[in-house]
Simulated scan of single mutants.
Amino acid sequence: MPITDVHQDPEALTLTIVGECAASRTRLWEAWLDPRQLEQFWGPPTWPATFIRHETFPGGRSDYFMTGPDGSRAHGYWEFLSVDAGRAFEIIEGFAHEDGTVNDSLPHTRITVTFADLDAGSSFTAVSHFATLADLEQLVAMGTPEGMTQALGQMDTVLADLSSFAADRTVAAQILSDTQVRVSRVIRGTVDQVWRAHHEPELLKRWMLGPDGWRMTVCEVATAVGESYRYEWESDDGAPGFGFTGELVSAQAPYREVTTEAMIGMAGEPVRNDLTLSAVDGGTLLIQVITYPSAEVRDMVLATGMTDGMETSYQRLEREVLAAV
């Protein structure tokens, strides 16, 4: 992406970066919305980013880390102050400790990013607002202007591949760390519809079945934080049934919820599921970050064909639930 302007204004305490591209404004917006794409340009080439949480709604939060050439990590966060879908968002961006808590020893900035249509594409304008001149000078001395320019300059490659991201509507799993996996799927339906399908028992029983030949016999949904849920399945051919139970840890309907998950009858630490729904062109981007107790458990679950079962269920969701709405 051609970066057309980089401007520091010590009087206004701002750093402005402007870029233009041949892609549409909608495609450009979705590059920032989808963590799979965002992490390809939020971070200089030698410090690529990994987003383990990305919630593009007011009050949402993103957590990420950038990995250096020597394997060291620099952690950061975003707090979304406002979102005008497809046109603008405003965040607080700052540094974080390894556990995700805010690192107050370094400055944070308020960043506004706006998107505009051009005759031959679109543009973005990112304005970083600093609290004091000392904060601006400190981050400039740390190489922030050069780092952001290098990072955002990588966007051309991402934008050139946006069409394949939009067309790729099958479940994809990406290992983020020793214990975390990110599952992604674009679902043909609105955010509200997909949220309802995950929370109304009569809908869940129609699609959350995994491979053909299984039926959900118990569907107890948690409706408030702190409540427990319980799902059980049986096979038509008499194979042993199974089930999961867990607790609703937090919820921000219809965009995000966090739950724990444990297989009924199995000992061990539960899994943590962080589900986020975002509106994209033609559907809803579902992102689920799964945190396992260990790398061994992570690999064991992935080896069961988990993503194949999820894909079968999501196809059923589109075909038998959302298509009828």
Score class of each variant (00 low, 15 high):
106 L>C: 01
158 V>R: 07
71 G>C: 12
262 A>W: 00
51 F>V: 06
146 E>W: 12
300 M>T: 12
230 R>G: 11
241 G>E: 03
158 V>E: 12
41 F>R: 02
73 R>T: 05
281 D>R: 14
128 S>M: 08
179 T>I: 10
325 V>N: 08
265 G>C: 03
91 I>F: 02
246 G>A: 10
188 R>M: 05
192 D>T: 09
104 D>L: 01
172 A>P: 00
323 A>E: 07
176 L>I: 05
27 R>W: 13
96 A>C: 02
148 M>R: 06
70 D>C: 06
30 E>P: 01
137 E>T: 10
278 S>D: 14
128 S>G: 02
202 E>C: 01
49 A>E: 13
178 D>W: 04
195 W>Y: 04
143 G>F: 08
79 E>L: 06
173 A>T: 00
14 T>C: 01
119 D>I: 13
169 R>P: 11
121 G>M: 14
109 T>K: 06
232 E>Q: 11
93 E>T: 00
242 F>C: 09
164 S>D: 13
265 G>V: 02
31 A>S: 11
44 P>G: 14
287 I>T: 03
316 R>K: 01
5 D>K: 11
304 T>W: 14
60 G>L: 12
155 M>V: 12
8 Q>L: 15
54 H>I: 06
231 Y>R: 07
252 Q>P: 14
124 F>Q: 04
297 V>S: 10
212 D>H: 12
30 E>R: 05
275 L>I: 13
105 S>H: 07
250 S>E: 15
74 A>C: 09
250 S>N: 15
314 Y>A: 00
281 D>V: 13
92 I>N: 04
15 L>D: 10
63 D>F: 14
98 E>R: 00
215 R>H: 10
288 Q>K: 12
5 D>V: 03
82 S>Q: 09
298 R>L: 12
133 L>V: 08
151 A>R: 03
239 A>M: 06
133 L>E: 12
84 D>S: 03
129 H>G: 00
154 Q>T: 04
6 V>T: 14
296 E>S: 14
284 T>H: 04
308 D>E: 15
166 A>Q: 13
136 L>V: 04
149 T>W: 10
282 G>C: 12
63 D>S: 11
222 A>C: 12
57 F>E: 08
211 P>W: 05
68 G>P: 05
167 A>M: 06
2 P>M: 02
121 G>F: 12
252 Q>I: 14
289 V>D: 07
123 S>I: 05
37 Q>S: 09
232 E>V: 03
319 R>C: 00
48 P>F: 07
261 E>N: 14
142 M>W: 04
75 H>I: 00
311 E>Q: 08
41 F>G: 09
293 P>Y: 00
115 F>G: 11
122 S>M: 12
70 D>T: 07
165 F>S: 13
77 Y>D: 04
45 P>Q: 10
23 A>I: 10
213 G>Y: 07
291 T>W: 10
251 A>T: 07
239 A>E: 06
305 G>E: 13
295 A>D: 14
102 V>N: 01
183 V>W: 14
316 R>I: 00
65 F>A: 07
54 H>M: 09
280 V>M: 10
228 S>K: 13
142 M>R: 08
232 E>H: 03
300 M>D: 13
289 V>R: 01
248 L>I: 09
